[in-house]
């Protein structure tokens, strides 16, 4: 509260000033009514890297993820305090235009959720809203984003088929393509592979490794193997607290907190 009042005065770290970090999280608290779901967390998220958020169910990792692009606004009674600094704005403030924000910080959900439209229209849905009308331009963006999502070869001959006719893994890559089409800077992935079979999962992971060259990626995952395979940094959440945040190698080989060790060795969660 105090910090939001004196808004222009937040301290901007040197790294953030140099634009090396994508997000600077400081003393963030998220509440659902009276329940504090995220407790006083502070850490930084690097640009063009994959940051994995791990922890048992209900630990606050998804809540945190959904607060970055303000999807929590949809939940009655949810509110946040503290700072998520993105360039020169605090994302949790009331005066943020969440529509513009969500265009810059895209999100892919746990269950593939393509619109009940054609593959083509799934991608152009948002573009048309942003006023792109030229067929040529639309075609071009559709192809580009499908290529980026490694889906183009599989669907280029049936762009006008229903998106629901795709397999689960293809649907999820379509959802990623749809998000990429609006040209975001950060991608939030909320357990993007948990509803998929191993082969589709592998494809998504491969894709994430490819995408991090261009985008900052934050991924919530239940699978520790997945976190260790694809992420550069890992944050371990437990009951709303950020227990440990470090290089992924370090977290999985030599964690400094005992709880982290117990979790990654499978003793709970």
């Amino acid at each position: 509260m105090l910090l939001t009042k004196m808004k222009p005065e937040f301290e901007i770290s040197e790294a953030h000033e140099r634009k090396e970090t994508a997000l600077d999280v400081k003393q963030l608290n998220i509440y659902y009514g009276n329940h504090r779901a995220v407790k006083d967390i502070s850490f930084t998220i690097e640009k063009n890297a994959v940051t994995a958020l791990i922890g048992p169910s209900g630990c606050g990792k998804s809540t945190f993820l959904r607060s970055i692009n303000r999807m929590n606004d949809l939940i009655p009674g949810a509110r946040s305090e503290g700072i998520i600094l993105y360039e020169d704005v605090n994302l949790i403030e009331d005066n943020i235009n969440v529509v513009a924000l969500r265009k810059e910080i895209g999100m892919v959900f746990q269950r593939p959720n393509p619109f009940a439209k054609s593959i083509y229209n799934n991608i152009t849905h948002a573009l048309k809203f942003y006023g792109i009308r030229s067929k040529k331009k639309l075609d071009q963006i559709v192809e580009e984003s499908l290529r980026k999502a490694a889906l183009w070869e599989e669907v280029k001959d049936r762009l006008h088929d229903s998106a629901l006719s795709l397999s689960g893994g293809q649907q999820q890559r379509l959802c990623i393509a749809r998000t990429l089409a609006v040209n975001p800077k950060i991608l939030l992935l909320d357990e993007p592979a948990s509803a998929l079979d191993p082969i589709s999962t592998a494809k998504i992971e491969e894709l994430i490794m490819e995408l991090k060259k261009e985008y900052t990626i934050i991924i919530v995952t239940h699978s520790m193997q997945q976190a260790s395979r694809i992420s550069d940094k890992t944050a371990f959440f437990l009951s709303g607290e950020l227990v440990e945040f470090d290089q992924t190698d370090k977290i999985f080989t030599n964690p400094s907190n005992q709880k982290t060790e117990e979790y990654i060795s499978g003793r709970f969660g």
Binding site: L74, V99, R102, G106, F115, H125, A126, F129, C175, R178
Partner: peptide, 17 residues
């Protein structure tokens, strides 16, 4: 389904649209 609405909002589309 809720996820349809979320998908659209998450793309930076207004509620009304």
């Amino acid at each position: 389904p809720r996820d349809q609405k979320e998908a659209s909002l998450a793309l930076g589309i207004t509620h009304w649209h």
